[in-house]
Design a binder for these strands. Sequence first.
DNA 1: ATCGTGTGAGAAAAGGTTTTCTCGCCTTCA
DNA 2: TGAAGGCGAGAAAACCTTTTCTCACACGAT
Lengths: 330, 330
Amino acid sequence: MTIHDVAAAAGVSISTASKALNNTGRMGAETRERVKRIAGEIGFRPNALARGLLSKRSFTIGLLTNDTYGRFTLPVMAGISEALVDHGVSVFLCAIEDDPALGQIHVEAMLDKQVDGIIASGKRMDRRLPVDLSSLPVPVVYAFTEGTENSVTLRSDDAQGARLAVEWLVKLGRRRIAHITGPEDFFSVRERASAYRGVAGDVEPVLYGIWAESWGHEAVGSIWSRPGEKPDAIFCGNDQIARGVVDALRERGVRVPEDVSVVGFDNWEIVAAQTRPPLTSVDMGLKELGREAGLTVLALAEGRRVEPGVRKLPCRLVVRQSCGGMSPTE
Amino acid sequence: MTIHDVAAAAGVSISTASKALNNTGRMGAETRERVKRIAGEIGFRPNALARGLLSKRSFTIGLLTNDTYGRFTLPVMAGISEALVDHGVSVFLCAIEDDPALGQIHVEAMLDKQVDGIIASGKRMDRRLPVDLSSLPVPVVYAFTEGTENSVTLRSDDAQGARLAVEWLVKLGRRRIAHITGPEDFFSVRERASAYRGVAGDVEPVLYGIWAESWGHEAVGSIWSRPGEKPDAIFCGNDQIARGVVDALRERGVRVPEDVSVVGFDNWEIVAAQTRPPLTSVDMGLKELGREAGLTVLALAEGRRVEPGVRKLPCRLVVRQSCGGMSPTE
DNA sequence: ATCGTGTGAGAAAAGGTTTTCTCGCCTTCA
DNA sequence: TGAAGGCGAGAAAACCTTTTCTCACACGAT
């Protein structure tokens, strides 16, 4: 079913058919309607390849990621797709692990297929993908991974998210707020810890460790075995740690949230909602991030100018039951 | 950088350039080499759109899924991508939730873009995607979702997987093996339960519930509060339930694996590995499934014949510490 | 009646590649 | 020496769509 068939069925030339369908050119209103009607009847759909060949726009973008679990990439992907489907844009997903060769192959495949742009995404903000995207013939937007000089980079505002969490604990009356978090060499960890310090003061120490439940367990063990007063709240670097913390507290007979409030980070539904009690957690708004990234790369593809630099998107607090209190505005 | 540029730089016609690069046609070895060398030097990469327009092959396929978390789709996607990247095929990922309209839009977008085929994937084997793919102009393969009459469908062999798990427990000397699993209306649940019955006999009941940790907890509660002998092993319908079971047992002072062995299903790394002790679990080989699906849809796209029907791929047991014993072959 | 103007519609080129067909020339054999 | 055959390479069509250009015609005005 090509435009030839439409033209033939309508008794017009292909030029006229094309113009009728695209609402361009001059022609009798009756002719235009007839062509459209017939196109609809025979189920004509224009070949995007032919169209792309001419227009230099493929209505296709690539999403490159090294996030194997999809923990971060999936929400980002959902946001991108949601934002772009209205514009008729489809998304190539390329998971490249941390293999530079694989990354190169995928980038080249995408370029061959004339993608209108590429979104690079990852699993942490302070690492680059193992492939250089700095001098590609198509626009590149970085979302949740470190970008190059003069690029457009989107990230969550972790400091604001951390403040949100700690201020929420303060508002609930907590005063001895501890922070159990991931490895200090993560930029996000330092940023969250610093924001935490800003609000909570230095009543309690920051405990750096790894992104695992076991670390949450262990950290609780070391805090509760030390002499002196215990924290009445714990702000955790991610939901997995928070889960370990909650489990460890329960095992010690410490009640959550009555004795100790716990806040997580990431709002990873699958962890946060299954914890007992379900975790109050900071949501980085990854779907929003994806949506923004999609719209931005589209704007660049259309030649619109976009201010380069890092754009931070706000986090929000999702209140469940691990803190007590039921709404961040109460 | 088009083939025109290559031809001009090499001082030959575009036909000759094309033939040189594709190793077709007749020409002097020296000419062929020169063209190739120059193409490499100026970084020529053929435009896949133009090529696809002519060859009716876009080297692009679509992956349609309604699995929001990506729990099942991500491994499948990884397998597809891994199998097809060697063939130069890229994958459009379309997450359609359960929205028929959205599904329709994505399918049409993919068809417009001339995908060579579509892989439909989902989150359970006995439900269809909310969009009809039965009479598309491109081949369709179903992976981990129910297919239509006369289609090619790939799924895991859950019965075999369940047998693997229960036989492993038996081999470890367990005799009273319980089965705590998901909702009975899932086909996989019935299939696994039936295979379990076949090996374990009816010493212990099958407990149907929901796919959540809380259900694992609850089920352990109900078993341990009943009078009489307790199970010495529990085969769980998925890892989340298994995690709930393990946690509940620990809380009751029942040791895992010394007193009770626990096996999960899905081998969801993020759950199985974080449980204490880490879960022995049945892996459905979703990556293999994806790989097979990719190769199959490719074969169909190339016009090779593929036997329609349901193809079951074997599961394997991943041994961690929740059962005791360290290797399925010891 | 003629010129100009505006309107409807078609012809043709363009986009990048592959493939078939054709052509000229050189070699080889009779 | 002439014919046949093989080899190297180019011309052109094809894929499908969009867009610009051109053309024919009718109508109003001079």
